[in-house]
């Protein structure tokens, strides 16, 4: 069973600072890592391969330095890595990004499952995974916390919800986005690290992927970022105590003052 895992390289958020003037991330000098949620996607892909055979291909769209993230994925057990990199991709929003990734999936061709992390720690949109499945016209299950059963044609998974979980059976091929409850990502092995060092990362640009140029980059992105700002921290709630009638009066006057 061939599996495709899609990852994103992100700044290590424990180190990130915001430029107060532009309200954008200060990326200089910040270590780049695989998006933490994608680590669970990589692990799940490798676990499924170990159980069912086949291979895991990891893909990422990003600048040339995102190669490091793909090498790390190989050190963790992925077999092949493809970097989708092209100046024309710059400025892509989640719609354009998922289009590019879906073109790569089409080019890879033979696959049963695509796995993504539930969201990226920098953008937090959780849109790219579902976007890939929509571009490809295949089913998707988001927030997967357990893969229960897989046959050649179907998969049964547990999908996390706020109250509990749903059991979903889906035909394959299918796309899953996974949550951190699904597994415990392993550390790389030495053999894996050596393999990663030697690994040739395949690079595909917009032309290799046969992209429609109107659908990629800033111009191909329907999203317009109007303003980026740091929201003010939410104030702590106030708990009023005492006799009900007094509390009601106090509440009413507080609300008047506030609004």
């Amino acid at each position: 069973m061939n599996i495709i895992v899609s990852v994103k390289q992100v700044p290590n958020t424990t180190q990130v600072r915001i430029n107060p003037e532009t309200n954008t991330l200060i990326r200089e000098g910040v270590e780049c890592i695989i998006n933490p949620f994608d680590m669970y996607a990589v692990e799940e892909g490798v676990l499924l391969k170990e159980k069912l055979g086949g291979k895991v291909t990891v893909i990422s769209m990003g600048p040339p330095q995102a190669e490091a993230a793909l090498k790390e994925a190989i050190s963790l057990g992925c077999d092949e890595a493809i970097l989708l990199t092209d100046r024309l991709f710059a400025g892509s929003d989640t719609w354009a990004t998922s289009y590019v990734l879906s073109q790569a999936v089409k080019k890879i061709g033979d696959f049963s499952i695509i796995i993504c992390g539930k969201q990226a720690s920098d953008g937090d949109t959780a849109q790219v995974g579902p976007g890939i499945s929509m571009h490809l016209g295949i089913p998707q299950v988001t927030y997967v916390k357990k893969v229960e059963k897989i046959t050649k044609e179907t998969a049964r998974v547990e999908r996390m919800t706020e109250e509990g979980f749903e059991i979903i059976e889906t035909p394959l091929p299918c796309l899953f986005t996974v949550v951190k409850e699904i597994n415990r990502p392993r550390l790389p092995s030495l053999k894996g690290k050596m393999k990663a060092k030697k690994a040739e990362i395949i690079k595909w640009g917009a032309e290799d992927l046969g992209c429609d140029f109107d659908k990629i980059g800033l111009d191909g992105s329907p999203t317009r970022v109007v303003k980026i700002f740091t929201p003010p921290p939410r104030k702590n709630g106030v708990i009023l105590k005492g006799v009900t009638s007094e509390i009601v009066d106090k509440l009413a006057s507080e609300l008047k003052n506030e609004f």
Binding site: L187, P188, L190, K193, M194, K197
Partner: peptide, 19 residues
């Protein structure tokens, strides 16, 4: 060497994250 650096990095990671 590259290989020795890998050993060092990996053991450092295990020491910090796991031990």
């Amino acid at each position: 060497t590259e290989e020795q650096k890998m050993i060092k990095d990996l053991c450092r990671q295990i020491a910090r994250e796991k031990i």
